[in-house]
């Protein structure tokens, strides 16, 4: 019940760009062609409930101007920061949906956009130096976030956490890797629509994560997968403390070998 109350609050959180408020809405994205170098364009999406246009550019998954998006995020603390012509959502998450949209592009109109900065969550190259974790090795847990209704490993978000998990498993010669995948199957009202993940996506997530381990050299027999419907949100750093995305995760527990 507590979970439903939280989601219900999210669904109706509209009308004003309240700092820190967690938003969730469906929209057709608009691209603003600012040019401050590579990856500097802006993505905007309007919350149909409030009519407020948000700047969703910082989401790890960028939008596709031909397809609808599910936007999740929190209104940024600094309202004066407006590089794209929209209220900035921080900790933004964008899920690209299989719903068509009419593509639309705005000119820069004086907005500078953002100069690209390599995000903190990026996978290190193979040629970078790498130290083994200090002994004694202990069991560790990892959480891998996913976009809505997707099992794709999101670039510079999910891949960062999953690479850490796989690297740890390799470093400590894991004797067991337990993978538990979740899907947000409970319908919630978003922008007037009931939205729920397909139950099968949990299994797909589990299998994809398993493949990451086995393709990197972890023996198949030590990797154990399970999947189930998500019951309780567990906001954490992997989801930037957002509530709804925390239902779309995979938990990994790695037990070191001898």
């Amino acid at each position: 019940m507590k979970f439903l109350a939280v989601l219900g609050l999210l669904a109706t959180a509209s009308g004003a760009a309240t700092t820190g408020a967690e938003l969730r809405f469906l929209s057709c994205p608009v691209y603003r062609d600012t040019d401050a170098g590579k990856k500097s364009g802006c993505w905007l999406a309007t919350d149909p409930a409030s009519g407020i246009r948000y700047d969703i550019t910082t989401a790890p998954t960028k939008a596709d101007w031909n397809r609808a998006v599910l936007v999740e995020g929190r209104v940024a603390a600094n309202p004066a920061d407006n590089p794209c012509g929209g209220v900035v959502l921080e900790a933004a998450r964008v899920s690209v949906l299989d719903r068509p949209c009419t593509r639309h592009m705005l000119p820069a109109e004086g907005f500078p956009g953002r100069k690209f900065v390599l995000p903190d969550r990026n996978v290190r190259p193979l040629y970078a130096s790498h130290d083994l974790p200090p002994k004694p090795w202990v069991a560790q847990n990892f959480i891998i976030p996913f976009d809505f209704d997707s099992d794709f490993i999101t670039y510079q978000l999910s891949d960062y956490y999953l690479d850490r998990a796989v690297s740890y498993a390799l470093d400590v010669r894991a004797s067991r890797v337990d993978i538990m995948a979740y899907a947000a199957t409970k319908p919630t009202l978003v922008s007037g629509e009931r939205l729920a993940e397909d139950r099968a996506i949990a299994r797909s997530r589990a299998e994809r994560v398993r493949d990451w381990f086995t393709m990197r050299g972890i023996p198949l027999q030590v990797v154990h997968i399970r999947w189930q419907d998500a019951k309780v949100p567990r906001p954490g750093p992997e989801t930037d403390m957002l509530v709804a995305p925390s239902l779309r995760v995979v938990d990994i527990r790695i037990t070191p070998g001898a």
Binding site: D35, G41, K62, A63, Y155
Partner: peptide
Amino acid sequence: ITSPVGFGNPVRNG
């Protein structure tokens, strides 16, 4: 480039 990886469609780059 523009799918399935989330660089965006379009994405400004060189």
